[in-house]
């Protein structure tokens, strides 16, 4: 049976690989429009930062503009260049700005979008109301520069952003080399709002980040349950005694 026969019987056919559209994960995050990534609780900011950098594939190799607020920087640290290079394995051109309040940060984000010289604007702000997000959405649409806002936990109000993600950490994957050491990072990102694909709102993605292959994959929630806290020898002895 030759190829023509197979084709005539409908057994084989040409496969059209379509490029990922916006209606698929990550729903345009980091490629177009305004997106919000919110922490689920205090301390989840590192997971949210990691999620933004791993879930987005930059289209253009232009500079990244990182805006942070002084209070956030004090409480949750600042972005580390070494880790960023580890995560992307290439040198990212990055200019940063630390502002005193959210207003200045949002103004700088809008200014950067209008200038069109950066490929991605990431701003960490304490709050962004509907008007501010609407302004940024319009500016982003007009100039084609994506904006991502990292917001603190408890941010629930109305927004004009295309998507709002709520990110938290999950226990890492088992480490095959050392059972006592943390493995690959896992996060749970739930899509709270999605203007591009409203039906997708409410979905939760459990993602595992592999720092060797630089890829993310969706994992089952069942894989790793909560682990027992480490205990000292004394505590172990006491536990054995009570048992």
């Amino acid at each position: 049976m030759n190829l023509a026969q197979l084709r005539s019987k409908g057994l084989i056919g040409s496969v059209n690989v379509e490029p990922a559209t916006d209606a698929e994960f990550p729903y345009g995050l980091g490629t177009q429009g305004l997106h919000e990534v919110v922490d689920e609780a205090f301390g989840d900011r590192a997971a949210a930062t990691g999620f933004v950098f791993t879930a987005t594939k930059p289209i253009r190799q232009e500079a990244l503009f990182w805006i942070s607020q002084a209070s956030t920087r004090r409480n949750l640290g600042c972005l580390s260049e070494a880790a960023l290079q580890e995560m992307t394995r290439r040198q990212i051109c990055r200019i940063s700005l630390t502002t005193r309040n959210s207003r200045d940060a949002l103004w700088a984000a809008e200014e950067a979008v209008i200038s069109g010289t950066v490929s991605h604007v990431i701003a960490e702000v304490d709050e962004a109301d509907f008007t501010a997000t609407r302004r940024l959405t319009l500016a982003s649409g007009r100039h084609g520069v994506p904006i991502t806002l990292l917001l603190p936990y408890g941010n629930k109000g109305a927004t004009a952003a295309a998507t709002r993600w709520r990110v938290t950490t999950r226990p890492s994957s088992p480490n095959s080399y050392d059972a006592r050491a943390p493995g690959c990072a896992r996060w749970s990102a739930s899509l709270e709002r999605c203007r591009i694909a409203p039906s997708a709102a409410g979905r939760t993605f459990d993602i595992e980040w592999n720092d060797e292959t630089l890829s993310i994959r969706v994992v089952s929630r069942m894989v790793a349950g909560p682990l027992e806290a480490r205990a000292s020898e004394l505590e172990k002895f006491q536990r054995r005694k009570t048992a």
Binding site: R60, Q61, E62, A63, C93, I95, L97, T99, D104, W107, A108, E111, A112, S115, G116, T117, V118, S119
Partner: peptide, 19 residues
């Protein structure tokens, strides 16, 4: 690189002038 440093510095100037 795609980075246009001249354009980036005009952006940086504007932000520095205000902040």
């Amino acid at each position: 690189t795609d980075v246009d440093e001249a354009a980036l510095s005009t952006l940086a100037d504007r932000i520095n002038a205000r902040l």
